[in-house]
Nucleic acid binder design. Structure first.
Lengths: 219, 219, 219, 219
DNA sequence: GATGAATGAGTGTTCATTCAT
DNA sequence: CATGAATGAACACTCATTCAT
């Protein structure tokens, strides 16, 4: 009966995998289409038939590449967490030893990842809970490692007296959150491109950490 | 057949409706059970049968109270937005005319609502997208009004020179976001109760707005 | 493509449940239709859709009465074993204390049950192996009790010297087997009705046990 | 996904083809693995994928050797019936002209075949019904010829007055049945090896035919 | 001979919903 | 108000089989 399109929580941008690790071919196409569908309708809201239709394949063909729908999600979630963790780690490595520079690098990378891969960010954060524990575990481990990177930088900055913060945990959560909600409202534009956005998030983070930034430009 | 419990994205606290507007009775019990289920498994992940089972009722009995599963969600989403909007409006009314006091009031109310009603916050933010436009519209309108309250305060503060901010929109988004992710990590405790949390969010918000707070206490 | 009817291992007699314990209604109709289908095509060869079609129902309607296809089979297998065990026990109770009379009663009951309920005999014996252990267990327990009845009679007869047998176990198996293959070749007729058949099996059993019967009639 | 092994109706002995007519190679390996699987799970319960997995092959590889799954079964059924018929014929040829000796030979051969090739016995008897008539026909013809051999011996013995039997058909069925259920309970052991079993079946058959055997040994 | 990718039909089962009682 | 029985569509997934390589 229904001819109206199903509701979607994200604009239908082309979904882009962050990793070059997945070789071209049907497997990659499945992951990309699934990323798009899971991001816009949720794991339970997107059926294997929807996925097959989007790929111009028959549902059964998917099972030559993944043992189950859950495994497709698990792979996306794993890739998302790895790209995120790798992005943070690489940023930190190029940032010298100053806590302020390290924080700049982390926040910038965090924001760029979420702004450039909004679908993956959504899937990773909203759908990981449908995975059974054994499929979610590797990603949850990575997540903790990534959180630890931020915490360590904040603690070092505090120890050195460059950060001044009422509550390290809540502040760290606030800084993380800056990126996590991006996919729901941000869309790159000339007036606010990803680079400017990253700069703004860096500035806001430093303010929360009690670091006096340069004088704020007019809006 | 399945023995293992389905994965859940939230701890299974007792779900609590914010409003006294719903009279006791089966209708209220349905809303409370649905809130719990939709929050922990998502709208598509929780079936009418699950809901009926949780209520010790037969699925068909629910249709005497709501015309469809979607209408149950719509009602929750509406209540959530109304409670939120009402909470912000009330806070603002009691806050005097100073932008700093107004912002304090808004952030405090925003944080308390999300900390005290985590299930409703999750359902309102993650599941509204499954509603067809006509059911989602009233809530989306309220949401814009609530956002406008925050924007107006920030703009007034800026005009009066008490807020100094690199980008009003991004900063407003950052402040809103502070509350939205709470349900995923925050749990009230003696070491960090909801009141302290609200104070911390106020402090972080003011810092982002360039307002020098009191000297930060250690940890 | 295929328009030819699926192969069947049994003639399509009306399947008859042995028990009056199942009340009339859809549940009973399902059991009867399943008995017919499982007997003629095997559990795996008969689909839920076949069953629903035979009942002029939609497949989903079956799940209001049984939680799974396996549970339908399990119920049939249980009923078959209970009817069998009950039949043997009742026969034995009315047979006095003479081993020969007791054996007569057991063989007669065993044969009548298999001859009168060929579908149930086939399902019970050929399909029980598809049940998971927990569903098969009660029936397997009954089966052992039934076997024990026959063994006990043979042993008592041997102890009293009225039976003379080269190997009790093999002979007991041979007597049991007399009934088990009946559904594959026997069809009641005026020339060989179930009563005559039971008499013949009694005679053959006694001969195997070394008991001199009455002079054999000419074919 | 399933971790528990599928239920099986036969112990997982190594399945052994009776015939040296099948040359070594993949075709023979397929037949042996199929024999094992069809015997333990039934034709419909064992998939081409199961078969390929057991052979460490891909499903498509099987189609270079057999045109369909049904043809694999048909070949097994044909081989089983030929081995059986050949076994009976050979036994009869070496048995002289006395009905008693002929019957001894037939029963002995029948029992040895079923005891030594339980999987084939099960497949031949329980799965032939899934074959379409044209694939089953040759085997059914052989089956009738084998039955005719037994009937002929019984009739000659009756005509000569050495057998005395209440009903030739029922008695012949009883004698045949002796072998058919063997795979479900018999396992060769030192206490009851196949040779002893064959002797016992000969003895039981002769008793059913009214021939006084040697005095029965104790147990 | 064997493979990997695909197909089309079909599997058992669950879905939200209806309706007579 | 609530139930039990039913529906029709959809679900994730498996089936035997094909075919280009």
């Amino acid at each position: 009966m229904s001819v109206t399109p199903p509701p979607s929580r994200l604009r239908s941008l082309k979904a882009v995998l962050p990793s070059s690790a997945v070789p071209d071919g049907t497997r990659r196409r499945i992951l990309e289409a699934a990323l798009q569908l899971f991001a816009s309708r949720g794991f339970h809201g997107a059926s294997i038939r929807d996925l097959a239709t989007a790929l111009e394949l028959r549902p059964s063909a998917l099972y030559a590449h993944f043992p189950s729908k859950e495994h497709v999600l698990a792979e996306l979630v794993r890739m998302g967490h790895e790209a995120h963790h790798e992005g943070l780690r690489t940023a930190l490595l190029g940032a010298g030893s100053e806590p302020i520079e390290q924080l700049r690098a982390l926040v910038r990378a965090h924001t760029l990842l979420h702004a450039n891969h909004p679908q993956l960010a959504v899937v990773v954060n909203e759908e990981i809970h449908v995975l059974p524990p054994e499929l979610a575990a590797p990603s949850l481990a990575l997540r903790e490692q990534s959180a630890a990177l931020l915490h360590a930088v904040i603690e070092r900055g505090r120890a050195q007296g460059v950060f001044s913060v009422p509550h390290a945990g809540v502040t760290a959560a606030a800084i993380s959150t800056l990126g996590l909600r991006l996919p729901y409202w941000y869309e790159p534009s000339a007036a606010l491109d990803v680079d400017m956005l990253a700069d703004l998030h860096v500035e806001l983070s430093l303010r929360m950490l009690g670091v006096q930034g340069p004088p704020a430009p007019v809006s």
